[in-house]
């Protein structure tokens, strides 16, 4: 293992409070990324002095709205627009909301679990 990585599972309504805590402690936002398993997971990664910490929220369905952290970390708006464009997750109060025009994809919400349509066609297996 090159480094220890802490992973903290939290609930959606705890998110803002926890992120404010990280901001106050002087962490920088490394990335926000969504993962599709049976449910949708969003990882918020922070780093301070090479100390890597992850917050994870689990979203049972795409209809649930999650709060934006872009009022705390302004740079988060890019990651959040990416998630909402690729997965179709609704995010409230983003600093800049591109309303689905951040990524110009032919298929709307290509990574969305309900989207089983034409994605992946034409790829050599």
């Amino acid at each position: 293992m090159t480094e220890d990585q802490r992973l903290i599972d939290i609930k959606i309504d705890e998110l803002l409070e926890k992120v404010i805590g990280f901001h106050a402690a002087g962490y920088r936002l490394v990335q926000i990324g969504c993962t599709k398993t049976d449910v949708l997971e969003i990882n918020y990664s922070f780093d301070k002095d090479y100390n890597f910490v992850n917050l994870r929220i689990v979203i049972p369905s795409v209809d649930i709205e999650i709060p934006s952290v872009s009022s705390i970390y302004w740079s988060a708006f890019l990651y959040e627009n990416e998630i909402s464009d690729l997965y179709g997750i609704k995010i409230k109060n983003m600093a800049i909301d591109y309303k689905g025009n951040f990524y110009r994809t032919t298929v709307k919400y290509p990574f969305n679990p309900q989207n089983t349509g034409s994605s992946g066609e034409g790829i050599p297996s």
């Binding site: 110009r104 290509p110 994605s119 790829i123």
Partner: peptide, 14 residues
């Protein structure tokens, strides 16, 4: 105001 997304190739999906 920046805007990207002209060349999204979907490599993560691959």
């Amino acid at each position: 105001i920046p805007s990207i997304g002209f060349i999204h190739r979907g490599l993560e999906k691959l």
